[in-house]
Amino acid sequence: MGNSTTAAPARKQEASGAGAAASRGRKRYSVLTGVDKWQLFLMVGIPLALDLILIWGPTVASVFISFTNWNGYGQITAANVNGIKNYQVLFTQYLFFWPAVRHNLIWLAFFGLVATPLGMLLAVLLDREIRGTRIYQSIFFLPVVLSLAVVGFIWELQYAPTEGFINNFFPLNRTGHMIDWLGDPNINLLAVLVAASWRHVGYIMVLYLAGLKSVDPALREAAAIDGATERQIFFRIVFPVLAPINVIIVVVTAIESLRAFDIAYIINHGKNGLELLSTLITNNSISEASLVGFGSAIAVVLLLISLVPIVIYLSRVMRPERS
């Protein structure tokens, strides 16, 4: 690190002198030794190569495949290319696309308006060093440790119509009066959202709690001395100070909503009211259905939608800290 502070101005010098030096045909001067260059090459090159091979390669390939009718058999030939047919079918004929988009949006709205604010509220409450705060933190954080597949399994047991806990605890399992939490397409998305929120709330709580701990207590004390109420301290002082965390929370919420998959897939492979873009991709391209080209088109649509929050997130995270 000590090196970099001195290297920066040196490099600047070199840049301004390089043009003149080159024209005079003198040997180019570099602050980087041969070892430095090798280190740079390895430390940048290897991650770059992995990034290209594992992230960008498949992404570009998916975009390419989305313009074909490839079904996973044999090689892709010119005959497979069918232009924007997949997208045409997807937007105008495919019966499950718009319901899936709607469910993703409902997911986003529910997370943004209910689950995330709840997580933030818990964080604020637990930040006040109430008695047993660590126990509460652990309890709320516990679902985050579980994979969504496990969360889905746990909630399936709660929701099952005849054998589930909810319908048996409240006497809702009599024929004719049964609430089919997972099978009724009018309510199963809400039921799944409760299950997903169970985990999401803890996740947001931990993120926000970490942010709250970083707020300088002197700020609060000063505000309190000036006569600010608790509410004013939070909304006027703490919340604005936490602006960077707030953006991350918003973006995390958006990304979590867009990539929602596991619970719906565990419950019924994403059908009957639980269609999501992610489950459509899986059901079309990785299952026995083997509509790889069509599935890729859905994946590209999801990618384009996801780019919005991802770009916001990255521009926030990568931005150099202002002093």
Binding site: P185, G270, T279, N283, S287, L291
Partner: peptide, 20 residues
């Protein structure tokens, strides 16, 4: 039948709609 027709986002969904 074709697996893409018979599957979750296909006949399975349609039959559940019918049964509702």
């Amino acid at each position: 039948s074709r697996p893409d027709f018979a599957g979750a986002n296909g006949m399975q969904s349609f039959l559940l709609t019918f049964l509702r």
